Simulated scan of single mutants.
Amino acid sequence: MPNKIDDRISVAPQIRPEDVPALAASGFVHIINNRPEGEEFGQPTGMEIAEAAEAAGLGYTEIPVTPGGFSMAQVEAMAEALGSVDGPVLAYCRSGTRSCNLWALAAAHKGGDPAELIAKGAGAGYDLSGIRPALEQLAGR
């Protein structure tokens, strides 16, 4: 189910608490929830995922992103979360797209090359070309 961007990060559509043990068994050490509460009827709450993560020995961070866009605070929080984890991270939202975009923005903010970030996103099945101007601005190019 996860779409691997690189050895440090994968993104996925909404996960369920019962998915977490398998994620832990496959090597993930941290989950980042980029989905706002109540976005869709029947989605698990962040607390349910957090409890499942804790039970499986995984770290958990919430950085909810609405479909309307990204704030600098969210970009910085994602960069901080990714920088504080030693091991593979799974970030999820409704489809995985916001998580991939936020990862790329955070990576550009830390100096990542926009062309490389776009290529990594494409390799995982996500088109990041629409945020290229933001990636270039964050990367200082």
Rank of each mutant, 00 (worst) to 15 (best):
I5T: 05
D7R: 14
R16F: 14
P17A: 13
E18F: 09
P21W: 12
A22Q: 15
L23C: 06
A24C: 04
S26Y: 01
G27V: 02
F28V: 14
N33R: 09
R35C: 14
R35M: 12
R35N: 03
E37V: 01
E39G: 03
E40I: 04
E40M: 07
G42A: 09
Q43P: 02
P44V: 14
P44Q: 09
P44H: 12
I49W: 04
E54H: 13
E54G: 07
A56S: 15
A56K: 04
L58W: 13
G59P: 15
Y60Q: 13
T61D: 15
V65W: 07
V65K: 03
P67F: 14
P67M: 12
F70I: 07
S71C: 02
M72Y: 11
M72C: 00
E76S: 05
M78L: 04
A79E: 06
A79V: 02
E80V: 02
G83T: 01
V85N: 09
V85E: 05
V85D: 04
V85R: 12
V85A: 09
P88L: 02
V89Q: 08
Y92S: 05
Y92V: 03
Y92F: 15
C93H: 09
C93T: 04
R94K: 15
S95V: 07
G96M: 11
R98W: 00
N101G: 05
L102P: 03
W103D: 08
W103F: 05
A106Q: 11
A106V: 08
A108R: 13
A108K: 13
H109D: 11
G111A: 12
P114G: 00
A115K: 15
A115N: 12
L117T: 00
A119F: 01
A119G: 04
A122W: 00
A122V: 03
A122P: 02
A124R: 01
G130I: 07
G130N: 08
E136L: 06
E136H: 04
Q137L: 07
Q137N: 11
L138T: 13
A139Y: 10
